[in-house]
Amino acid sequence: MTAPPLPLTVREVVGETAEASTIVLDDERGGLAEPVPGQFNMLYPFAVGEAAISLSAFDAGRLTHTVRAVGPVSEALRRLEPGAQVGVRGPFGRGWPMRRARGRDVVLVAGGIGLAPLRPAIHAVLAEREAFGRVLILYGARSPADRLFIAELESWDARDDVDLAVTVDYADGGWRGRVGFVTALLPHIRFDPDHTIAMMCGPEAMMRAVASKLTARGVPASDVHLSMERNMKCAVGTCGHCQFGPLFVCKDGPVFTYAEIEQLLAVREI
């Protein structure tokens, strides 16, 4: 369906980093279907264009998106002010396997803006913390100043039922944390490979490395989940842009198991 977007009002804009902002949209009337963690919307800042942006949080009537400005649409989204309207289509796609994750250890691995689509999964796990085993969050950012959701990271870090590890590619003066790629954190974490669900979002090279390390440690490829990014124009399987081999990332994904896409990930330029 390519029905026209629904206009929604910006309720709040929070600057996260020099490049990224979180935008809360008001859908109190429930014009859009209730999303699930891992789904995305197509956001249309007036007269600029549409971009696929994941839900980074949602609760009754509030749809939250976190956008990194990289081009015309994302830049226009970041510049939105409370009270402005944007066009919204969605929610689209297959989200994270929240049901399958119950009763298991949950390993969440994010790189850069990839923390945004994982955040609703983290919220869902923490909302019913006792329904899950160990909770491990690994997050890699370019620099300390590029970390998203800093207050929330601190609150997760303060919990003793969450293992959070943050690493940065480049440290600055005040940083006392880890430096290096997120893959380097993997050997240090403990989980039960037979009873684990892994969810990750970040650059493709990072996800390939993390997925292969997790499966090497015994996590079945069907329990490792990756959120893919491709060019998207329609989000409903009719524009062809998001094709990834036989898959349409917009409607078959964006979340796939490593078992589904391991072979495709190994093919260059597919």
Binding site: P4, L6, P7, G83
Partner: peptide
């Protein structure tokens, strides 16, 4: 044309297919 959108003086958007 998939749709047309108008923006009024208050910034409210209206989409038509």
């Amino acid at each position: 044309r998939l749709w047309r959108c108008t923006r009024d003086a208050d910034g409210a958007l209206d989409f038509a297919g």
